[in-house]
Amino acid sequence: MSLKQSIGSLLAVGLLLIVLLNCPPATCARLYGGVRDALSPLVAFLSDTCSSCWRASRGSRVLAADNSRMAVEISRLRTEVRQLKSLERENAELRHLLGVEARAGVRLIAAQVTTRAIGGWWQMARLDKGLSDGVAHDLPVISAEGLVGRIVDVSAYTADVLFLVDPSSKVSAKLSRMDAFGIVRGQGVSLLGDPLCRMDFIIKDAAILPGDEVVSSGLGGVYPAGLVIGYVEKVYLDRSGLYQYADIVPAVDLRSLGFVFIILSERPAGPGKAAPAREEQERKRL
């Protein structure tokens, strides 16, 4: 290659790099989405194949044990669902009598984790659901155990979830045993691989005990109230003496996450049967 050609190549690449580094966010998002969506079927296939191979390598005895454990779990969950349905009916009747409107439910969508530890720089995972399934930015992601994180990037067929243990993640939280609020911040992963979180700005008079449940407070607008975040491990008084902070063990085992649920939206409350009941009570009282 001649000197002229070399200089030409270097200049062309230099210009291209300048263009790439100054690309508008919308163009970047389109480009990223295009690449991810083009690769997503292949990634899903390879991810499934790897999981199948892993399961097969564990042997039939382990699979049989898993199967019987799951059968027990299913029967336990069915019993719980029956009990909860009767409680729900009772709750609805009581709400109707008291004239309180029915609480809004949530609409969930199941998604499979296709890639973990994206890039190795952040505590993130990629899911196989995207804009085409109704997924959008900042939607909360949960699993059966509790809160996983929120959606930070979405393309047509994929979405990236930022785990709550990522240092850039913050969740407004409260202790479910008492009305003590705080902010749960991610602390990354320890050298032993354990995910870490910390709850800051808890009032100093709160009597927090190890094992106390921490749930989302619903403040801030991203996470609905009542999602289990984790459990208190240790409590400390801040150096300023103005507030307490606590180490939190996340409720969800983020290392072995296979399926998650994205909270698409809160369903609107049911037709308010409560209002006429209240009016009737008022009429009787008068």
Binding site: L17, L20, L21, Y32, G34, R36, L39, I118, G119, W121
Partner: peptide, 20 residues
């Protein structure tokens, strides 16, 4: 450049960092 763009898209890095 091609590897960098692919890498950034897949790894959620700002565009152009890997290529650079």
């Amino acid at each position: 450049v091609l590897g960098g763009v692919l890498n950034d898209s897949i790894n959620a890095l700002p565009l152009g960092y890997s290529a650079l």
